[in-house]
Design a protein around this nucleic acid. Structure first.
Lengths: 120, 120
DNA sequence: CTCCTGTATCGATGAACATCAATGTCGCGT
DNA sequence: ACGCGACATTGATGTTCATCGATACAGGAG
């Protein structure tokens, strides 16, 4: 896994404004970013991501997450897998329990690309 | 259409960090943001959005956009409609031509919600 | 070793989606 | 008026996806 999920070039990261508004996205970059957005583009996954990212411990047990939604356990597990597969969540198993942690850097990367702050 | 697409509350907009990392997203907010992310979560639409947002004129004619992809005209029209329907694009017809303009504020809203800059 | 419990995987099903060809609609020129 | 060109809408098709029940795979307790 790369240090930065999106592997933005110096020009891109140092840019005054979000790459998306700076110059047309390349096909490759668009295809690399889209899966991250797609993973977030679902209400349940957005809330899962938020629940984990806003937790004081930084980590949240799946057992807690399962109880926070009126969805079956396999469904929650599926959504967590989607977020994990694109690199938005880290997974650590301790004993019988599994904990997920948010990769806030990845979130920041996505945000910086699509919007961020503009001006010089 | 609301002034701000996401209608973030003062607490949310003035927050030190992205709402998503600050406190668990409410069901309503998650369901309001997800469609915007879904609209962006497609390589072609991401590139369309970028092409329009990065254009010097601020506006781009559909005739230009159609030529920039190896896709049928209806398909491009469909993608533009998706972006327009969620409020990411503005549409203006002049003569026979149709021009689309990026709602950068909407992009910034989404970015601020999911990532933005953290720290205190 | 054998249950019980937490989590992941599998298989199926119905809904949503990307794409295209065909058709419709609206302006402009002739 | 007529026809052409730009764009949108419709209908159809194959694919992707969210969800669930059933099942598999751990690891701890007894």
């Amino acid at each position: 896994m790369p240090k930065s999920l999106l592997e933005l070039t110096p020009v891109q990261t140092a840019a005054c404004c979000p790459p998306l508004q700076r110059e047309p996205l390349t096909v490759e970059l668009a295809e690399r970013v889209a899966p991250l957005l797609k993973a977030l583009a679902e209400p349940v996954r957005l809330r899962l991501m938020s629940l984990i990212a806003s937790s004081t411990d930084g980590e949240v047990c799946v057992c807690v997450l399962s109880g926070a939604f009126q969805l079956s356990q396999p469904t929650i597990s599926h959504h967590l897998k989607v977020l994990h597969d694109v690199g938005l969540l880290e997974r650590s198993k301790r004993g019988v329990w599994v904990y997920y942690k948010a990769r806030t850097a990845a979130l920041a990367d996505v945000a910086a690309l699509i919007g961020g702050t503009k001006d010089a």
